[in-house]
Design a protein around this nucleic acid. Structure first.
Lengths: 203, 203
DNA sequence: AAATAGTTTAACCAAATGGTTAAAATTACG
DNA sequence: CGTAATTTTAACCATTTGGTTAAACTATTT
């Protein structure tokens, strides 16, 4: 009889695959390593997911789906710009502190598999960008901020929030930070980034 | 007799290896593919470089060495902060427009091989960071800018300049840009990023 | 309990891949 | 020229790797 795909085995596979793929990427990951990590027979990987690519695709889509949509849900809310920026920064810096490898994983594989992404995330269809555009235009017209395009606004916000995690090893090396000091550095930026953004938009 | 390592073959190997490694990373690259790209026999790869890792190491060090030091040389100059920011942004946005895959390559492999980096780049030994710290402190004391740590200053500058290239596929997807439009976007940011940075530092 | 469907295992396989080798071709040079 | 050193090639090798298979095991159903 058919069974919901909820068995312990399948969950173990997913957790293991997620861990290994995120650390080593599609090309670098070994099916045997995933099986070992999940403490199951390698054949089970092929039993539940046809092959490496299928397994990877599943994991990537799940990771992308938990990484990206929040960007838009926060920016699409009906609140003052400053509050949304604070929410965004606070949420992502927390999330990335817990999962510091996610950005590199997503961006690396996105480079070679852009099509995975389009499906995994329903971006274009949501009118959120237009909403943000309207807000930015309104605030500019009201003289609260300088004019700025949504693309530049989002690029700045995402850059300042995400890049430090991508460059973590480099930053730690350059500024002689240990891991705890890096965490403090990020914690500090939770305050600083919204200040940077809002200051830079002052008329 | 011994010959300078300058033969056409060796250069072909280096160019090919660079291209393939940057596109696919260490794990994703195939020695045969590099040989094909260089139009030489695969055995030549092992004749000039002992093995895949050696070849990769050589390429990575060269790439890192042309990617990183300029960061410090520009920021270490004896010029006004605003000029240095403009120089930095202008230089890197040009360079990355020509080599958009470099950052992802460097940061990806840096994550798994941090030791390559320390050797490849003589960062710590140069007193440039101290110099920047002094300048930031002086400008703050003189009331020209808000106080900011060198780490935050550099993180902001690098984030705003480099991240868009890492996220290029995502940005193009979200904002429906084709490649030319993305180039225009970057061109526009050559002006905008220095403005952002300096505005955000206004007292 | 017998039959059936679903799950797990161990052994196996073919292709891909990094690497080697020995001989051939080419170049340097007394 | 002739000999030694260097470069290049083709064939080969061992291991790794993704994937398969058939049998054993475990529920589930009737």
């Amino acid at each position: 009889m058919y069974m919901e795909p909820n068995s312990t085995t399948e969950n173990r596979i997913k957790e293991a695959a997620r861990k290994i793929f995120i650390k080593k990427g599609l090309a670098g990951a070994r099916m045997q390593e995933i099986a070992d990590e999940a403490k199951i027979n390698k054949a089970m990987l092929h039993y539940y997911y046809r092959n490496k690519e299928q397994l990877f695709k599943k994991i990537f889509e799940e990771v992308a789906a938990e990484f990206v949509p929040k960007i838009f849900s926060i920016l699409g809310e009906d609140r003052p710009l400053e509050v949304k920026v604070q929410d965004f920064v606070s949420h992502y810096l927390d999330m990335l502190t817990r999962n510091p490898f996610l950005p590199l994983f997503v961006l690396s594989e996105l480079r070679s598999q852009p099509e995975f992404f389009e499906n995994a995330v329903g971006i274009k269809r949501s009118g959120i960008l237009e909403k943000l555009a309207v807000q930015l235009k309104a605030e500019a017209k009201a003289g609260h901020i300088k004019p700025i395009s949504p693309a530049n606004f989002m690029a700045n916000l995402m850059s300042l929030s995400i890049f430090p995690f991508l460059a973590q090893p480099m930053l730690q090396l350059i500024f002689s930070m240990n891991t705890q000091e890096f965490k403090n550095f990020i914690e500090e930026r939770k305050q600083l980034i919204p200040q940077f953004i809002m200051s830079s938009l002052k008329t």
